[in-house]
Design a protein around this nucleic acid. Sequence first.
DNA 1: AACCCGCCCAACCGCGATTTT
DNA 2: GAAAATCGCGGTTGGGCGGGT
Length: 258
Amino acid sequence: MGRQPCCDKLGVKKGPWTVEEDKKLVNFILTHGQCCWRAVPKLAGLRRCGKSCRLRWTNYLRPDLKRGLLTEDEEQLVIDLHARLGNRWSKIAARLPGRTDNEIKNHWNTHIKKKLIKMGIDPLTHEPLNKEATPQHNQDDRHDLEVNHEESQKLCSHVSSSDNSNAPTENSSTDESRSTSDLGDDDLLMNYIWSETIFLDDSFWNISPETSGSYSNFGLPSSEDNFDQWLLDYKKDFGDEDFGLGCLSNMDMNSGTH
DNA sequence: AACCCGCCCAACCGCGATTTT
DNA sequence: GAAAATCGCGGTTGGGCGGGT
């Protein structure tokens, strides 16, 4: 079958979003939750394609998003996950609280990829680019990577041992430092949009049950039922190897319900 | 000061998957 | 079961920005 355009091309605005558009979209989703995206532009009074609205919301306007560069730990986790999942950015993003697939994809292409190549590692296979003759000047980098890899393996236990493991805005000093020192124009803009449109009230995020779980728990299931499904999905992605599952079993699952 | 160039990232596009009719 | 509608993902693009000359 021929594929229909996602929306009427006529009268649909493209390009960067304005503050007014952001406010309209945020307002609409605050009032109605996330329903069918195709209907959103019309109902919200936006001259945008529904797809564009969805992207804008998921990649930029969602309140649980972290902003700023990925931390060292996050970067290492991305590398680790990419080695296992490949370019399945949405799956990778699901394991990084507050990060979007687009953000991770961009970061991979602009930073990590180059870093790995510089280290003599194929970013696609995660194998040494030239196993026989790794450049001498990369030895130190290789060592750094190995050290980082060890650190990434520690990361899981580090995360699981934290009482605030499900609260990314609280769980690391790096986040805290960024929240104060990296507040850029975007953050100011977002503050403006949100201050104009909402009331950062937890009750709002109960509007949409299926979304509130994922938002409030940052990729971890909110109940044991969800956890079973999540675990199946997890095993499907990673196989039965114990990548992080050990630490999950140690987690206090009740803590994932807040 | 003006220009060039590369980097970064928000946004778009196309397509497969899933759901609805 | 087929067709249509919608969603979601991954690849790509293009414009803004900063550094270098």
